[in-house]
Write a protein that binds this DNA or RNA. Structure first.
Length: 529
RNA sequence: GGGCGGGUGGCGAAGAGGCUAACGCUGUGGUCUGCAAAAUCACCAUUCACCGGUUCAAAUCCGGUCCCGCCCUCCA
């Protein structure tokens, strides 16, 4: 496998032991996360899934920055306790990330729970001459770390000369950064040898990553805006403490842009993830985020999500076709020949290409391309071959297994919640039957009316030879469905089509819905269960 | 100013020396269908920002020009 390592600026062969340690910079929790924050989550979740697919045991750590200037500022303005405030958004973070199908990390360490380790590390840096104290604040002495700048590709001398950073008179050099900051009145603090205060931003990641993954971390990831100064400083701190290389492979994702401008909180052009997830299925959002290579910029607008939805639909449609084609309890393992064998070989070939693409710096865009080719072969096979043939069944079954497996490596086939069917789902077949009989009787105006009505409520009907297929992201309220059925029943009654009217009544009764005819019209209630 | 990365069809996006420049969306025509939808089959870049160069061979390498984004300040 190869990765683009920010440290070397080129793709490198990944030399990994069976057990891989991975650290990804997590959010500072003072707000709901936005779409831009979601990109690294999905990207590195996918990296993790793929490494596991390739047989590695991955220990995945993602931190929460729950002690931070902005958190303190916002919490103070709202008159809340900063840690509780941060906790609230950590909870919200998990709600959003779970919904997006981001697997939880093996550990989610928080700054507030690692004060002792952080203070120890700062102490070590002071002892070794990499840091100095001034009036209760501790700064990192950048000049003392000769490798400083190796990640972001800048030289210490240039930076010292440049001095664009706002200058704190007390620092030895403008580029020196805070390891420990003494608390101002009204700010939370922790005791330390220097002052009552809190850590600077960068030290937490150096400490927590090495704490859980050892002195040298295999993969460290984050957005490319973290390269400088955050990750540069992490290296300076960690390597000064341990004397060993901090990270072997640095991975950084590109940004999401809006009208070609970086989506960011300061520009105010961000979209809150949960607002998007209210409207767009999570797997579509995931698909959108990985359909482009992770290092490329990704422009956002509603049209892009709509395109993603259509594209993903094609892939998921193959899943539906496979389900319709496959016959349960037909597992006759056997030699394949003819078309069945050709499909099998084609799927294997594409699977190999998928792996080749992912092996090349996690090229999800290329990998997805091969998934589409797979869908194409499967669809063609299903359209042309006899499902009663057991060899075809076997070939389709194998294809389905591979196709689903690769899709789940990318996390783009949201596992259909296999739990209890809602009442609404049980009512849909009723609509299908009404439509089917209407079609048989050539009552196309009723058949079309049903399709249009369901369509206007977000349900698409596609007719098959016998039955109809439904597609929808969300069902309308059960109430709406029932009322429509009552309306139809009323029309049947008016036309004296009592058999149909009774069919509706009886079918609803089977679902525990009782209809009562009153002077004012039909009413319904749910039977007690 | 310094450091990264990029400019590929109507749109999105792969490709990084040599098969017909993947794949998706959109569009067009055919099959299927009561009509649709889905599926299927076919078509849709002699050309990869521009100009030079290297090479038997360049979208891919080198030099130059023009654009664009990001980082250098909290940011994924």
């Amino acid at each position: 496998m190869k990765v683009y390592n920010t440290l070397s600026g080129q793709k490198e062969i990944m030399d990994l032991k069976p057990e891989v340690g991975m650290y990804v910079c997590g959010p500072t929790t003072y707000n709901y996360i936005h779409l831009g924050n979601a990109r690294p989550l999905v990207v590195f979740d996918t990296v993790r899934r793929y490494l596991e697919y390739r047989g590695y045991k991955v220990t995945y750590i993602q931190n929460f920055t729950d002690v931070d200037d902005k958190i303190i500022q916002w919490a103070n303005e709202l008159g809340e306790d900063p840690l509780k405030f941060a906790d609230f958004y950590i909870e919200k973070y998990f709600e959003d990330a779970d919904k997006l199908g981001i697997r939880r990390a093996d550990m989610h360490p928080r700054v507030s729970e690692h004060m002792q380790e952080i203070i120890e590390a700062v102490k070590t840096l002071v002892d070794k001459g990499f840091a100095y104290e001034i009036n209760g604040d501790v700064y990192y002495r950048v000049k003392a770390f000769s490798d400083y700048g190796k990640l972001s590709g800048r030289s210490i001398t240039d930076m010292l000369a440049g001095a664009r950073v706002e200058v704190d008179e007390r620092k030895e050099e403008p580029v020196d950064f805070a390891l420990w900051k003494s608390a101002k009145p009204g700010e939370p603090y922790w005791g330390s040898p220097w002052s009552k205060g809190r850590p600077g931003w960068h030290i937490e990641c150096s400490v927590m990553s090495t704490r859980y993954l050892g002195d040298t971390v295999d993969i460290h990831g984050g957005g490319s805006d973290l390269i400088f100064p955050h990750h540069e400083n992490e290296i300076a701190q960690a390597e000064a403490v341990t004397g060993k290389p901090f990270v072997r492979y640095w991975m950084h994702n590109g940004f999401i842009t809006v009208n070609k401008e970086k989506m960011s909180k300061s520009l105010g052009n961000f979209f809150i993830l949960r607002d998007i997830l209210d409207k767009i299925p999570a797997d579509v959002v995931r698909y959108y985020l990985i359909a482009t290579h992770y290092r490329s910029p990704l422009d956002f607008d509603d049209g892009k999500l709509e395109e993603a939805r259509r594209a993903l639909n094609r892939l998921k449609n193959t899943l539906i076709l496979l389900n319709e084609f496959l016959i349960a309890d037909r597992h006759e393992k056997q030699e394949l020949s003819g078309q069945a064998r050709e499909l099998d070989e084609e799927i294997q070939r594409l699977c190999d290409l998928f792996i080749e693409a992912m092996d090349d710096d996690f090229n999800t865009a290329r990998a997805i391309g091969h998934l589409f080719e797979m869908a194409h072969s499967i669809n063609t096979f299903i359209a042309n071959e006899n499902r009663e043939n057991s060899m075809n069944q076997e070939a389709a079954r194998r294809a389905a297994k591979t196709f689903k497996e690769l899709g789940s490596v990318l996390g783009i086939f949201a596992e259909a919640a296999a739990d209890t069917e809602s009442i609404g789902e049980k009512l849909l077949p009723l609509f299908a039957q009404l439509r089917k009989s209407a079609r048989k009787e050539k009552d196309y105006s009723l058949a079309d009316h049903l399709r249009d009505w369901l369509g206007s409520h977000g349900i698409t009907i596609e007719d098959q030879q016998e039955d109809s297929r439904f597609r929808y992201d969300n069902l309308p309220d059960t109430q709406v469905l029932i009322e429509k059925l009552l309306e139809l029943r009323g029309e049947f009654k008016n036309k004296k089509l009592y058999a149909k009217a009774d069919f509706i009544r009886d079918s609803l009764l089977e679902q525990g819905i009782i209809i009562e005819d009153t002077k004012e019209g039909a009413r319904y209630k749910f039977a007690d269960r």
